[in-house]
Amino acid sequence: MNEPSEADSGIDPGWPEEAVARLVGALAPQPTATVTPGQTLVTELGYDSLLLVQLSFELEDLFSVVPVGPEDAPPIGSVGEVQNYVVSKIRQGQAIVPEPGAVTECLRRLADGPAS
């Protein structure tokens, strides 16, 4: 049985990329609402190794990415590389397109910080 496509779901085809950009911006050391595909995670956005691991876990949770080994981990270069990785996982049926409400809730949780 075929999974519904992005077009069938009524979600904008550019939504996965936008959701990734929002997540990347929210996790950056200096959170920003605007990131571009060409920005580098480490050099331009200030990600360190801990934030890269957190980004990987957040992507897994938000997009329900099938867990992978180190050889298939998300790229750590640019925002666009992360976006392409997530879209390829969706196309391979190894991830889902999250609803906008799920993205909003994830971003709210990240903004609130860890529970005391």
Score class of each variant (00 low, 15 high):
31 P>N: 05
16 P>Q: 03
84 N>T: 14
4 P>R: 02
27 L>K: 08
96 I>E: 12
34 T>K: 07
1 M>L: 10
106 C>H: 06
78 S>H: 02
27 L>W: 06
32 T>Q: 04
69 G>D: 15
23 L>W: 06
97 V>Q: 03
15 W>D: 04
40 T>H: 11
1 M>V: 09
88 S>T: 15
47 Y>G: 02
73 A>R: 14
100 P>Y: 07
13 P>S: 09
55 L>S: 05
14 G>T: 08
103 V>D: 01
32 T>N: 03
77 G>T: 15
57 F>C: 09
89 K>C: 11
69 G>E: 14
37 P>L: 06
69 G>F: 13
30 Q>G: 03
109 R>H: 07
17 E>A: 15
35 V>A: 01
13 P>Q: 07
7 A>E: 12
50 L>T: 13
100 P>A: 04
101 G>S: 12
29 P>D: 11
24 V>Q: 02
65 V>H: 01
7 A>S: 09
38 G>I: 04
79 V>G: 01
99 E>Y: 10
82 V>Y: 00
42 V>C: 07
58 E>T: 02
30 Q>P: 01
72 D>L: 14
50 L>P: 01
107 L>E: 01
18 E>C: 02
40 T>C: 07
98 P>S: 13
53 V>D: 01
30 Q>K: 12
90 I>A: 06
20 V>D: 00
116 S>N: 09
88 S>H: 13
26 A>Q: 11
2 N>F: 08
31 P>W: 02
104 T>I: 06
98 P>D: 01
11 I>W: 05
8 D>M: 10
31 P>Q: 04
88 S>V: 09
71 E>K: 08
115 A>P: 04
59 L>S: 10
84 N>I: 05
60 E>K: 14
52 L>E: 09
73 A>G: 13
61 D>W: 09
4 P>G: 02
27 L>S: 08
113 G>T: 10
11 I>V: 12
39 Q>F: 08
89 K>M: 13
108 R>E: 13
87 V>R: 00
52 L>I: 11
32 T>D: 05
42 V>Q: 12
88 S>F: 07
101 G>R: 11
14 G>Y: 03
100 P>C: 05
77 G>P: 09
19 A>E: 00
6 E>I: 10
85 Y>M: 07
40 T>I: 10
28 A>D: 08
73 A>F: 06
2 N>K: 07
105 E>P: 02
57 F>Y: 15
21 A>W: 01
16 P>C: 06
43 T>W: 02
79 V>C: 03
102 A>E: 15
104 T>A: 15
82 V>N: 00
44 E>V: 12
58 E>R: 15
23 L>S: 02
115 A>Q: 14
64 S>E: 15
19 A>C: 03
67 P>C: 11
87 V>L: 03
30 Q>D: 10
56 S>E: 14
56 S>Q: 15
17 E>Q: 09
55 L>K: 08
111 A>P: 04
83 Q>D: 07
46 G>R: 08
111 A>G: 11
63 F>Q: 03
53 V>C: 10
63 F>M: 09
48 D>F: 05
68 V>H: 14
37 P>Y: 05
93 G>W: 11
27 L>I: 10
21 A>I: 04
74 P>K: 04
64 S>V: 05
40 T>W: 03
101 G>Q: 13
61 D>A: 14
